[in-house]
């Protein structure tokens, strides 16, 4: 129904599982990043998979679920803190059907499923966002905030505004799936 969102075929790399990653995005430490499939990473996004936990062995730094969208110019950076005198980065886990608007900076620890984050947001370190929550455009969420399920947050500092309708999960799921189908290559 809605008009397709065209992208230049040369710009994006499509993986076997349907992830579409822009060549103009900065993906640091790709071996530490997991994409769930059918996830779009737009141009100009910066994903810092290199900021890994110190210590031996393989570490997953950023994991994204299915049908996610990382908007243009987004910065995804794992949170860090000094615990018992040791500085360390901590992994960031993002669920399925998560859309993040353009130019947002994300340092959350956990983002649940069916979450929508608007444009120009700042999500502070170690923020926990539960399922089906939404964050309005231009919201600044302070570090260590917990955003409960089905809550709408807005403002600076981000505050609870309202409860979202019961059908949010279905709506977000339909919206994210539709966006993925609308996101079509344009040869040229």
């Amino acid at each position: 129904m809605d008009a397709p969102v065209y992208y230049s075929k040369a710009e994006f790399i499509e993986t076997d599982t349907g992830n579409k990653v822009s060549r103009r995005a900065t993906i640091a430490g790709p071996q530490n990043i997991i994409l769930g499939g059918k996830t779009i990473i737009s141009s100009g996004a910066i994903i810092r998979g290199d900021l890994r936990r110190t210590g031996p062995g393989h570490a997953v730094v950023i994991s994204l679920g299915r049908y996610c969208l990382i908007g243009e110019g987004c910065v995804m950076r794992p949170p860090y803190k000094t615990y018992r005198g040791n500085f360390n980065y901590y992994p960031m886990k993002i669920g399925d059907h998560v859309h993040i608007g353009a130019n947002s900076v994300i340092e959350a620890a956990t983002i649940g499923n069916h979450v929508i984050i608007g444009k120009n947001c700042v999500i502070g370190k170690f923020t926990i966002i539960k399922d089906c929550a939404q964050i309005a455009d231009n919201t600044v969420v302070p570090p260590n905030t917990v955003i409960p399920a089905l809550a709408m947050f807005s403002g600076s500092p981000g505050c609870f505004i309202e409860d979202l309708p019961e059908s949010t999960q279905e709506m977000v799921e339909a919206q994210t799936k539709q966006y993925y189908t609308r996101f079509q290559p344009l040869d040229r």
């Binding site: 069916h114 539960k130 399922d131 409960p148 399920a149 089905l150 019961e166 059908s167 949010t168």
Partner: peptide
């Protein structure tokens, strides 16, 4: 924190 419903007639 569950977003499921036992009854949901929307």
């Amino acid at each position: 924190q569950s977003v499921r419903y036992k009854i949901k007639l929307v």
